[in-house]
C-alpha cells in the first residue's frame, strides 16, 4: 500500500487518483480537527479543502522529513486561526448552523471502539490546549514531535503540555466513572 507522500507525488505527477486517496485518508480527521477551532462543520469542510489545495500549490519541501499528514494538519491549524481572526466578530454571535447528526457521523468514522468513545467524550470537557494535543496523539496517532510541530510548540513545551493534559484527562475520566488506566 502506498504511503501518503507517495500519493502526494503521484498527484503532483498528474494522477488525480493520488489526491482522492489522500482525501479518503485524511479528510474526516482534518474536518474534525478544524471544526474544533471554527465550530462550524460546513466551514471546516471548506477550510479542509483549502488546506489540501494550499499544500498542493505550495509543494512543501518538508513532506519527506516529517509527513504529509503533519504538514496538512499544521497548515489546517494556521488556516483555521486565520479564519477565526478574520471572522471574529461574526463568530461571536453565530451559532453552529448544521445538523449535529452530521458531526456525530463524522466522529463515528474516526472513533472506532467504545473505549475511544469514552475518551472522545472526556476530551470535549478539557481545556482546548489539552484536548487539542491529546486528540492529535490518541485519534490522529501522531508522535509528540509531530503534535508539537502542528501546535507550534518545542519538545519541552509539548511534553509539559501532554503531561498536564493527561493529568486533567485522568481526573475527568475518573470523575465520570471511566477507566483511564486502560488507555
Amino acid at each position: 500500500m502506498a504511503t501518503d507522500a507517495e500519493y502526494y507525488y503521484q498527484f503532483l505527477n498528474g494522477d488525480n487518483s493520488g489526491l482522492e486517496e489522500l482525501v479518503k485518508m485524511f479528510n474526516n480527521n482534518l474536518i474534525l480537527f478544524i471544526n474544533r477551532y471554527v465550530n462550524n462543520l460546513s466551514t471546516a469542510e471548506d477550510l479542509a479543502a483549502d488546506t489540501f489545495a494550499e499544500l498542493i500549490v505550495k509543494k512543501s519541501p518538508y513532506i519527506e522529513k516529517y509527513s504529509f499528514k503533519t504538514w496538512l494538519f499544521r497548515i489546517a491549524r494556521n488556516n483555521a486561526i486565520d479564519y477565526i481572526r478574520k471572522n471574529r466578530r461574526h463568530m461571536n454571535v453565530s451559532l453552529p448552523d448544521y445538523d449535529t447528526a452530521e458531526e456525530d457521523a463524522l466522529e463515528r468514522s474516526v472513533v472506532k471502539s467504545e473505549q475511544q468513545t469514552e475518551l472522545h467524550a472526556s476530551l470535549k470537557k478539557l481545556k482546548k490546549d489539552y484536548s487539542d494535543v491529546l486528540y492529535l496523539i490518541y485519534f490522529d496517532q501522531m508522535s509528540y514531535e509531530e503534535a508539537g510541530l502542528i501546535l507550534k510548540k518545542n519538545n519541552k513545551q509539548i511534553k509539559n503540555l501532554v503531561f498536564r493534559a493527561k493529568q486533567s484527562l485522568k481526573e475527568t475520566m475518573i470523575k465520570e466513572g471511566f477507566n483511564y488506566e486502560e488507555l
Binding site: V23, L41, E45, A49, D50, F52, A53, E54, I56, V57
Partner: peptide
C-alpha cells in the same frame, strides 16, 4: 457533507484558482 469525490473536485478547483492567483 460532500463525498470524497466531491471534496476532491472542490480541491482541484481551489488548486486551479490558487495557481492562477500565484501566477
Amino acid at each position: 457533507m460532500r463525498s470524497y469525490k466531491e471534496q476532491t473536485e472542490k480541491i482541484l478547483e481551489l488548486v486551479e484558482k490558487k495557481k492562477k492567483a500565484r501566477e
